[in-house]
Design a protein around this nucleic acid. Structure first.
Ligand code: SF4
Ligand code: SF4
Lengths: 137, 137
DNA sequence: AATTAATTCTACCTTTAAGTAGTATTTATA
DNA sequence: TATAAATACTACTTAAAGGTAGAATTAATT
């Protein structure tokens, strides 16, 4: 019951970038050291973030990454979507296919509320919202 | 962001057993067929449930499984604990070590509420509570 | 005592997530 | 133009989850 490493890393990376979006560019070496994320894994994640259009990369010497969109327009749920970690409305807590709203599983009634709160947390939190809020990075 | 297959299966199995606890014993073959769970995987899970003291097994011909404790005394969180799927209080949504309550991560404030609801759902739902509540099994 | 039908044990296989290695490409600067 | 420092690409390895196979054990019935 937790996010994949990729999603956790991506959120931490982007939250840190949002914290420091005044600095012109941030490069992979610095991000990996600062955030204690394996360098090679981080670059793999960054490339996916670039392909998804959340950040742009500047290649070559003095290159690095910066945001493509405004941090107020990037929601945490956008990040999760990239790694197939979104909380979908029809997602069953017991993994029984899709919910049709009629035939419930045993835990359905208890699941609705936390599911909505999780969706709300991810869908309504922008990078701007969460930037600078943590001392842990 | 979802429970392991083992946990999902175990909850479904025990919820079904709670639905049918009038019937003397339920055996692995029947459970596997009814719940569409791979037989060999189901028996592996059942053995863990036996070792954990939630159910007792009767070996040999006409054997099967039945509850060891009252269904009102088995909480869903007890099941999750067996498969290391519990929502722990210090569990960080971003996977940054343990929460000391002082140094927060970027999503901490948004995470507290859904985390508590998830814990509540698992800790306060007994098998008796959820038995017979679902048409999906 | 033999048979049958059940659980349990040990070991293995498969798939997916996580992480690593090496090379190619790009670009600023001396 | 050569060099250095950065991202991107391809491929591989490792670890964990998910699942399977087969034999051993247990116990009721004949
Ligand atoms: S009704 Fe049950 S099966 Fe459907 S989404 Fe809710 S929890 Fe899942
Ligand atoms: S403060 Fe942050 S690190 Fe600590 S538990 Fe909450 S979310 Fe996790």
């Amino acid at each position: 019951m937790q996010l994949s490493n990729s999603s956790q890393y991506a959120i931490r990376i982007l939250a840190y970038m949002a914290d420091n979006k005044d600095s012109k560019l941030l490069n992979a070496t610095e991000l990996a050291k600062t955030l204690y994320i394996p360098y090679k894994f981080l670059t793999k994640i960054m490339t996916e973030l670039v392909k998804s259009g959340l950040v742009v990369s500047i290649r070559g010497r003095d290159g690095g990454y910066k945001f493509e969109k405004k941090t107020s327009e990037i929601m945490v749920s956008d990040i999760l979507a990239i790694f197939n970690d979104s909380i979908k409305n029809e997602q069953c807590v017991l993994g029984i296919g899709f919910c049709n709203g009629l035939c419930k599983c045993a835990l359905h009634d208890q699941w609705i509320e936390p599911k909505h709160l999780l969706q709300k947390m991810f869908q309504e939190s922008s990078l701007e919202d969460i930037a600078g809020k943590g001392c842990k990075i």
